[in-house]
């Protein structure tokens, strides 16, 4: 169970997040939609403190922190309970696929090398990269790199995985393989918060869709509710722009 309470964040004078609250149940897949600049990526980054919220509260399981007086130890604990999959993959470029996945197990969890290795191999096999263990990122396609990124996020067995537009940087023909992997791990009951523009994927995988605009949650509900029967005008406008064929248009 993840609870964000009244999270606020400004860049200079611009208020990116205005008192946002969101709770995600264990095993739930929440997709955040919204136009660019709506604050969705910033919200996601706040959850593992790559952005520092100005105020608010983050709770994951029995761990709880007040963002206005966060200590170094709190931030590390929060980060160890969360993992992020980045738009630009952000793999460690001087490490092989296997080393990328093992890194946090060795350095953060202090796991013995043999155990870290066998777990990492299993994860890479799961994302379909059992044959690419010793390749450096520069030798992998975007889709393969992103799958390594997903394996790296899974390695620490976080309580939630945050996906920041995981397919936006990919060539269209590579999007499918990455979405397939995310779909698979969603089925395993791993809690996820996903920022994406892939509407079909959102409809398929999400238990809940959250529509954000202007730093606030405008509307949320099941994919059916939000896609078929959006209540708010801003949601309707947004969906009309990105899915012109949507059948709720009257």
């Amino acid at each position: 169970m993840i609870e964000l309470k009244r999270i606020s964040k400004s860049f200079g004078r611009h208020r990116v997040l205005q008192d946002i609250s969101l709770s995600v149940k264990t095993g739930e897949v929440v997709v955040i939609l919204g136009p660019s600049g709506s604050g969705k990526t910033t919200l996601l980054r706040c959850v593992n403190y790559l952005e520092k919220p100005a105020s608010g509260e983050i709770a994951i399981g029995d761990f709880k922190m007040d963002c206005s007086q966060a200590k170094r130890g709190d931030i590390l604990r929060l980060r160890r309970k969360t993992a992020m999959v980045f738009q630009q993959y952000n793999l460690f470029r001087h490490k092989t696929a296997l080393e990328n996945v093992m890194e946090a197990l060795l350095v953060v969890k202090k796991m013995p090398a043999a155990e870290a290795r066998s777990r990492s191999v299993a994860l890479l096999e799961k994302v379909g990269l059992g044959g690419k263990l010793d390749e450096y990122p520069s030798r992998l396609s975007g889709g393969q790199q992103q799958r390594v990124g997903i394996a790296r996020a899974l390695a620490l067995e976080p309580e939630v995985i945050l996906f920041d537009e995981p397919t936006s940087a990919l060539d269209p023909e590579l999007v499918g393989e990455v979405l397939e992997v995310i779909r698979d791990i969603a089925r395993e009951g791993i809690t996820m918060i996903v920022v994406t523009h892939e509407m079909g994927f959102a409809r398929d995988v999400a238990n809940r869709v959250v529509f954000m605009d202007g730093g606030v949650v405008v509307e949320e509900g099941t994919p059916d509710d939000v896609f078929q029967h959006p209540q708010e005008e801003r949601t309707k406008q947004f969906l009309r722009r990105i899915t012109p064929e949507a059948n709720w248009v009257i």
Binding site: F92, H94, E103
Partner: peptide, 27 residues
């Protein structure tokens, strides 16, 4: 060294020193 890799190191729970020693400095 691009900023993204340091963020990735932080995102998996490394301290700034670990990120420096293991990720940015070698590169």
């Amino acid at each position: 060294v691009d900023r993204g890799q340091v963020e990735a190191a932080h995102s998996v729970g490394m301290t700034s020193f670990q990120a420096l020693r293991r990720i940015s400095f070698p590169q």
